[in-house]
Design a protein around this nucleic acid. Structure first.
Length: 412
RNA sequence: CGGGGAGUAGCGCAACGGUUAACGCGCACGGUUCGGGACCGUGAGAUUAUGGGUUCAAUUCCCAUCUCCCCGACCA
């Protein structure tokens, strides 16, 4: 993509009110725009990152046999009354002019359960894994920290349907592994920990994936003895003892919850009377699990982890482009060489943001390039062309190197 | 919802109970530049969030409302 065509512009400044790093950098660089507190638009660059994350998750969900659907966001009251969750305080509600009640979905158990029930009747149909990417709405008391806590946000939610607990347990572990792959691909491998959390009404425990960062609003405890991370809520219940080994040597860390997985059991199959007929001809209740990842929050978390004083440093797999090509000094010679390289790279299926703007100085282009944070920068100038070269620099490194212009794509 | 802070040009901000609301960025035009946010000149752009009050006079002081940010409560 040519940067001269990008309708968004980089801003040198950001209000000092905006204190969260992810909001500062993403807004300045033109990835997102705030419509109101907790509600953001994704602009071209931001949507590219968003789609990268979405596709990583999609691939990993498909790898564990997930089938993608898209459920509505506008949901009828009846489904929530069946499970007793119409009174849930975070649910946003609205009425049509006839007075009929609706909610905007904050989760979709109440929708997916009766939906799957329509098709699944026998043990032969099980297990089933269904997921979607959907915008969720939650009436948070306080939206905050840029993309980290929104009122409207995109979530991948996967629901699994099983004939018994063992089958759920087995799949739960598969999802766990898939989640680790996702966070690894997003560059968060070293800072994301499986964390024991409260199971709510459904099970004793659930698991969260917590990414360690000072900007996190959660607190997790690390048991030094058994290497387990435990959510604060559990530790307090357990009187500051590791529930796994009884250890008392706990280290506290700030973190962001980037994913969670729950064993729902019969919590939703029962109210919807979702049974299947087993081999022996008897009807048994379906056993369920649910598994969520917030996409925007994940994107915000990546920025919180990967930034420096100059801007964002995107991990390879989620970067909007893999190469930021910059032409400086707009002589015909430079322009032609850059243009040619741009075409070549595209033919090689390398995603390139090409800064072809002629009215910007080198310094400005470099500064904006660092802010946007694409992993590899390639500079074409009179100086590099004298040696038949371009300059290649990694965003995460200080030094650049000269590479022969016809060896660029192979060197990437 | 409680506590704290803030709303002035597209953005970032200044000022002050009293001439024409200052400056920077950005934008437009002209020129000089061109490897780390260059420079000079010219120009356009503002009912100072909204409503009320005090006053001879309010962007400035007071009250209310709305919005935003931070802390807290809350977040299966």
């Amino acid at each position: 993509m040519k940067q001269s065509k990008l309708f968004t512009k980089i801003s040198k400044e950001i209000s000092k009110e905006e204190t969260s790093k992810n909001a500062q950098l993403l807004i300045r660089a033109g990835f997102i725009d705030k419509l109101m507190s907790g509600v953001y638009s994704y602009l071209p660059l931001g949507l590219m990152v968003f789609k990268k994350i979405e596709n990583i998750i999609r691939e990993e969900m498909n790898n564990i046999s997930g089938q993608e659907v898209l459920l509505p966001a506008l949901l009828p009251k009846e489904n929530w009354e069946k499970t007793g969750r119409w009174k849930y305080p975070e649910m946003l509600k609205l009425q049509n002019r006839a007075g009929k009640d609706f909610s905007l979905g904050w989760t979709h158990e109440e929708i997916i359960t009766p939906l799957v029930k329509k098709f699944v009747k026998s043990y032969k149909d099980l297990p089933i894994y269904v997921y979607q990417f959907q915008n969720k709405f939650r009436d948070e008391l306080r939206a905050k920290s840029g993309l980290l806590r929104g009122i409207e946000f995109s979530m991948k939610d996967l629901y699994s349907f099983h004939k018994n607990q063992e089958d759920l347990d087995e799949y739960y572990e598969k999802v766990k592994a898939a989640y680790f792959k996702i966070f690894k691909r997003c560059g968060l491998e070293k800072v994301t920990f499986l964390t024991l959390a409260s199971g709510g009404a459904f099970a004793k425990y659930s698991h969260e994936f917590q990414t360690e960062t000072l900007s996190g609003e959660d607190e997790i405890y690390f048991c030094k003895k058994c290497d387990l991370a435990i959510n604060k809520e559990i530790i307090e219940e357990e009187k500051h003892i590791c529930p796994e080994c009884g250890g008392k040597d706990l280290e506290i860390k700030k973190s962001i919850e980037v994913g969670n997985i729950f064993k729902l059991g019969k919590r939703f199959s029962e109210p919807f009377d979702f049974m299947f007929r087993d081999k022996d001809g008897k009807e048994n209740p379906i056993i369920m699990g649910c598994y969520g990842i917030g996409l925007g929050r994940l994107m915000g978390t990546i920025v919180e982890i990967y930034n420096d004083e100059k801007g964002i440093i995107w991990p390879k797999e989620v970067s909007p482009f893999s190469v930021h090509l910059i032409a400086i000094e707009s002589s015909e010679k430079v322009k032609n060489a850059a243009e040619k390289l741009y075409k070549n790279l595209q033919e090689e299926k390398i995603e390139v943001l090409y800064d072809d703007r002629e009215d910007k100085t080198a310094g400005e282009k470099f500064a904006e390039c660092d802010l946007i944070g694409i992993p590899t920068r390639i500079v074409v100038s009179e100086r590099t062309l004298e040696k038949d070269c371009v300059e290649v620099k990694k965003r995460s490194e200080k030094e650049s190197k000269l590479v022969k212009i016809n060896e660029v794509s192979s060197s990437l």
